[in-house]
């Protein structure tokens, strides 16, 4: 009876420890943000091909950017804090892309999650704070709230009102490969790392292309 009770305690401790181990993926994943990043890195996911509208009012889709590596961030144009920092980071990233002659391989897209407020005009004004839009850096919104929601859900981005008229969101750099799959999520200030990864992904695609187009296997 006594040893049976102790065996029961030991079994509960083992099962409980196993549960916590499983629930944190080996004591490494404690937050949903880490879980989202790990999940994407392990199993890249295709984002819904929703129709976006850019700062000039033109239609733009993520599908249309296939063949390029896309670095996407989610913004709202009234954002007074982190988006501004992220904006100037992307401005530096764009300069680096242009300097390296990678404009055909890597694109930047800043997507607003606040379509009610952010129309093309607001996006254009926001873009102008960082040197304006061009063929490398696009500023866009999904005009419909439903499409915006679908995109945010697919990327597991959660936007909360901050109580003072703005939003709080898990901001990050989303790396989308030339096949249109979200392959990595990096810290919002890690644009250098994102560029290194983007270049590697672009090189992979370039290296793979002749094989695919060759004799065929």
């Amino acid at each position: 009876m006594r040893s049976g009770g102790l065996a029961l305690v030991a079994a509960v401790v083992a099962a409980g420890a196993g549960l916590l181990w499983w629930g944190t993926e080996g004591l490494s994943v404690f937050t949903a943000e880490t879980a989202r990043r790990e999940a994407v890195a392990l199993a890249p996911r295709v984002l819904p091909d929703i129709t976006l509208q850019d700062e000039a009012g033109a239609t733009i889709t993520l599908d249309a950017l296939r063949g390029k590596v896309v670095l996407a961030d989610f913004i709202y144009t009234r954002c007074p804090t982190i988006c501004t920092v992220q904006g100037s980071d992307f401005e530096q990233a764009r300069a680096a892309i242009r300097a390296a002659g990678l404009g055909d391989d890597i694109a930047l897209v800043s997507i607003s999650f606040d379509p009610e407020h952010d129309g093309p005009e607001e996006l254009a004004f926001y873009a102008s704070r960082f040197g304006g839009a061009d063929d490398i850096w696009h500023f866009a919104r999904a005009p419909s709230r439903a499409d915006t929601g679908a995109l945010l859900r697919a990327a597991e981005v959660i936007v909360l009102p901050d109580g003072i008229g703005g939003f709080i969101h898990n901001s990050a750099i989303h790396v989308i490969d030339p096949q249109g799959r979200l392959v990595r999520i990096l810290d919002d200030d890690a644009w250098r790392e994102a560029l290194v990864l983007a270049q590697a992904l672009a090189d992979d695609t370039a290296a793979a292309a002749p094989v695919a187009g060759g004799a065929g296997t």
């Binding site: 006594r2 009770g5 029961l8 305690v9 099962a15 409980g16 549960l19 404690f30 949903a32 880490t34």
Partner: peptide, 29 residues
């Protein structure tokens, strides 16, 4: 009546269950 170890095992089941839901990712989930 049950032995002390059995009662303690029951409390441990509860402790692990509560600990699991205190992991931020599962609270979020």
């Amino acid at each position: 009546p049950v032995g002390q170890p059995t009662a303690i095992a029951a409390v441990l089941v509860a402790a692990f269950c509560i600990a699991f839901w205190m992991i931020p990712r599962w609270l979020d989930a």
